[in-house]
Amino acid sequence: MAAAVGRICGARLFRNTGIVGPQVCQLSTSAQGWTRNRKLLLSTLGVVGGGVGALLFALEQSVQASGSEAHPPHQPWSHDGWFKSLDHASIRRGYEVYKQVCKACHSLQYIAFRNLVNVSHTEEEAKAEAAEVMIKDGPDEEGNFFERPGKLSDYFPSPYPNENAARAANNGAYPPDLSLICSGRKGGEDYIFALLTGYMDPPAGVTLREGQNYNPYFPGGAISMAQSLFDEAAEYSDGTPPTASQLAKDVATFLRWCSEPELDDRRLMMIKVIGMFSLLSAVVYYFKRHKWATLKSRKLAYKPVSKK
């Protein structure tokens, strides 16, 4: 190893230049310019890197403009922003919407009842929610599968036993699992809100197949999910008026929480990171001044040695 390094760097490495020598060399730009090859390499790298970046940006932009679907407008989510947590009252209402409406067709298989504890429900309430559903369990001692009331540790049961059953019940379309849908769709909660509230009559010239509906926010426009949110389509236990847009907003917030249960922690971490890094940059700034003080206040004097 040492031999290889020595061969590459030559004797330069072993020459004793003192502590100041190398620093002074790096300080002056004119004394030791870049070699031609180095310049060539770096500028090629810069051009290639910039070009690839610009190409990716252009491709991404053209994809956005090429589709026929409407772009979901941005909504003022209360969790939008570096330090903003999710609105937990809204998560709780969104869970009620999921339970009363979406659960009929969509599974939420990566969320367990225990996840609700101290997020939207107390432990007692979450236990009660779990006890309301029947979970398939087994095999018991005789080898039979049986149904029992849910426990905190159970995941949300799915409405259909498998994908084929789900397709058969929905005109061949598969209602996707909603656990990660908010992160899995472009536009996130804006898209979900726009999709749920954006149903309309198909424009002239668009023909829909049996069981399809027109929604300009869905890629292609023809969606197999019928409009499910209307005013008073669900009931809220906290007395909020259940208008269609309120239901859509709450279920979108709930689905954002399902996709990113750690969102609140990340927002808190942001505050900590900013605090910690400002302390560290103060230290680094002080240290830089400290180290450069000698260099900046240095005077070099050349004393001709008289020949005697």
Binding site: S78, S85, H88, R92, N118, V119, S120, L268, I271, K272
Partner: peptide, 22 residues
């Protein structure tokens, strides 16, 4: 540091957190 950050977080998000509605 932790206590201070947590306090800032809870101040910014007053009324939205679980501890505010539980």
């Amino acid at each position: 540091f932790d206590v201070a950050s947590q306090a800032i977080f809870e101040h910014i998000n007053k009324g939205k957190l679980w501890k505010d509605i539980k």
